[in-house]
Structures are given as C-alpha cells and as structure tokens.
Design a protein around this nucleic acid. Structure first.
Lengths: 215, 215
DNA sequence: TAGCTTTTGAGAGTTACTGTCAGAAGACAG
DNA sequence: CTGTCTTCTGACAGTAACTCTCAAAAGCTA
C-alpha cells in the first residue's frame, strides 16, 4: 500500500474528504481540480507509454498547466504515485486498539482497518499503484523509504503504549518485521489481481512467520 | 550492510580478491586503479562537503578523469556507496548450512558469517556507508531496493531447499521479515558506533521478534 | 613495428528539478 | 462594484545527473 506520507496537504486531510467537505472557496476548488487533472493526465500517460517514458512536460501539457505548476502540486514525479493518506489512518487505528492486546495483533489490526477502507474506495487505483511499484524501480525505492517513515511513526506510538524506548532494537525490529510482512503480503495480493481477502492473507503470513521464528 | 548487488564487475569477483589475484595485464591494473581513485576521491569529498553537495563533475576532477569516465565505472552516483559483494557470500553461506536446520537459523547464520568477514576487513568503511544510509535518502532508497533483490535471491535458494514455491507468500514473508530485522539490527549497531557484537544483537532481535509474533 | 581492440575525453542533448519575477485571478473591505 | 491585498500561475534561466556519439589515445598481439 505504499504506506506513505500525505500529499502536499493543502489545508489538511485527504482529497476524498475534501471533496465531500462542502463549501470551499473558488480558489480551493480550483486547486483541487488542478490536482486531480494533473494526476489523471499523468496516470493516463503512464498507462499508454509507461512511467519512465512519460516526461513531466508531457504531463503538464496534457493537464493544461505549466511545468512550474506541476512541481507546485507534486514536488517530484514520484509523488504522483506515492502520496496517500494511509499513515494518519493507521495512527488513529493503532490508538484505538485496546490496551492489553498483544503488540503484533494491534499493529496488524491497525493496518487492516484502513486498508479495507481504502480498498473499498479505490481498489483499482491501488492495484495500478502496486503495478507501478512492481515495475518501476524509482517508485519502489521511494515507497520503501516512505515505509520506513511509517515504521518510525509506529515505533513512537508503540513506545508510548508500552514504555519501551522508541529507538530500541526491540521495537524497531518488531515494527520492521511487521511492516515487511505486510508490504510483501499486499504485493502478493496485488500480483494475483486483488482477488483474495487481504486481511486473511495478512493473518496467515504473520502466523506463518511467527511459527518459523519460534523454531 | 546494504546487502546489494556487485559492482560493474569487471572480470568477476570483488576488488579485494582482484587486487590479490596476481598478474593482471596493465590494462586491468589501470582500470582497478582508476576505480579506486574515483571511489576514494568521492568519499573524501563526501566527508568534507556531504553527499548531495558533491557533484559528479567534482568527483571526476578530483580523481583526474573525465565525467564520461566516471559513468563508465559507476553507472550512478549512488553506486559509489551501494555496491558491495555481500550477496554471493551470503548465497554460498546459505548453501553451506546443514539440511535439517530451521529456516530462520540458517538464514541468520548465512548472514552473520559474511558480515563478520566484511567487518573484519572494512569496518570503518561499513560504518561510513551506514552513516550515508542514515543521512541520504537517495542512498537509503537504493539500498532498500537492493535488499529486495537479495531477498528474491534468498527466496530462490530456500525454495530449492524446502520445496516451497519461491514466489509463495510463506517464503517471501519469512525472508522479508528476516531481512528487515537484520537491516534494522545493522543500522542499530552502526548508530552506536559498531561497539556491540553484531551476531549477538541479531540473535536477540530475531528472538524478541519471534516471541512477539508468537503471542 | 603494424594492426586490432579497448579505454578515454570532448561535446552535445535530455530530463528532473529549483528559483525568480511579473502578471492574472480569487478574496475581501468599504 | 471598486480598489487593495494575497495567492496562484506561467515564462525563463539555471543546475546536475545521466546518455550517446565519435575520434584520439593507449594497451595488446603477432
């Protein structure tokens, strides 16, 4: 899911929310429209020519904005694909877990909840992103770095909850492992066209890794 | 350790080996010398000015070669930092493990062995690399991608050994988890100046993750 | 020494990105 | 609805990492 940072968040929150969030000024509405125009022009071109063969100038032209404007909306070409609002969802999901619950279960559930939500709303887009993730090294690289960011955030949260040090090896290793397994699971799921139930898959994967580690 | 691919391997094998491998022609010796000159010029500049503030032109000038030549030796600036010969070592290490051994133990030992070797020979360089890994996003991104390559290789090996499918979720999740924990451990170790015993640290981390997953 | 192959440097071109600036276009007060 | 104030936009110039091509230089081989 390329757990990642949020976009150049204009006021705050996800595009979806903002669209539904009623009466924005004309300026804000235009910005949102431009953002969507750029992104959809880009994805169209990516589909037709591939990611790397598509230049920012082409995207800008297709979206009817200047290249400067492109970079005002997306700091890098990668951000077109990367930016999502997964992190804050995961954070609140994790905060909502009951206190006594085993760590791995908390993390797993905190990830599955938002994942379901996003999949319900934008399944096809997620699949497309995962395809780009698979095929474009630059995207993969960027997504992995963003995943590390998410991991650090999660360590902080779990540190609060458990009293363990956020930069200690124990938490860091745990979070890194869960994130790695999750990311691999989502990738696996996407490779198979997104047919299976992601939550089940993740539970299986974590269970199986647990058994191997315990040996 | 940025488990990664090998450099633009001139004939074959590591720089170290090649240096000791006796009577190369003048051409080969010069190439090796150039390669080392470029890398050491680069690391000098990185130390003084930082990675991103150092341009390829500067490196080329400092190493007394043309920019074109730089790119002949290192396809990207990142490759200066990334390329090592860890993968083949790990591969043969893994092949050498006894048949009945639990998977995680095999993988752990296969990683620790070469790690020790490399640390004994180039501890300072490893620490410097890890510092760049921490501080430079481009390096981190690249190293993470290379780690995925190593993971895929490892899946293949373990598939041979176990009969499980190399692209199945079970193996992939397991390998991803072990790699993530290992990478986090090496990072942790490097952050603390490389004082602790890496093998112990790794065993602890894997043990602790195993306990959390088992709950 | 002569001829073949590899390596090198020069130079021109592409692309992602950065920074600056003037003008256009919403927002807002009176 | 007019003038002012703020924000958004496009044009332009610049940088740095690559890529490609080609001719000269240097090592190799007979």
């Amino acid at each position: 899911m390329t757990p990642g940072n949020s976009p150049t968040r204009t006021p705050a929150g996800s595009e979806l929310e903002e669209l539904l969030a009623a009466p924005l000024g004309l300026r804000e509405r235009k910005k949102l429209k431009t953002r969507r125009a750029i992104r959809s022009a880009a994805f169209g071109l990516f589909r037709d020519q591939g990611y790397e063969a598509t230049t920012v100038d082409q995207i800008a032209a297709a979206a009817d904005v200047s290249p400067s404007t492109f970079f005002r909306y997306f700091p890098t070409k990668e951000d077109l694909v990367i930016s999502d609002d997964y992190d804050p969802l995961m954070e609140s999901g994790l905060r909502a877990r009951p206190a006594g619950e085993p760590l791995v279960a908390s993390v797993r559930e905190a990830m599955v909840g938002p994942l379901r939500q996003i999949l319900a709303a934008e399944r096809d887009e997620v699949l497309l992103r995962m395809q780009l993730y698979r095929e474009v090294p630059a995207i993969r690289a960027r997504a992995l770095v963003e995943m590390q960011r998410s991991s650090a955030m999660m360590c902080e949260l779990l540190a609060e909850r458990t009293g363990l040090p956020a930069d200690g090896l124990e938490l860091r290793a745990l979070v890194a492992a869960v994130m790695a397994v999750s990311s691999e699971t989502v990738q696996f799921w996407a490779e198979r066209g997104g047919e299976a139930d992601l939550a089940d898959l993740l539970a299986d994967a974590i269970g199986s890794v647990g058994r191997s580690f315990a040996q």
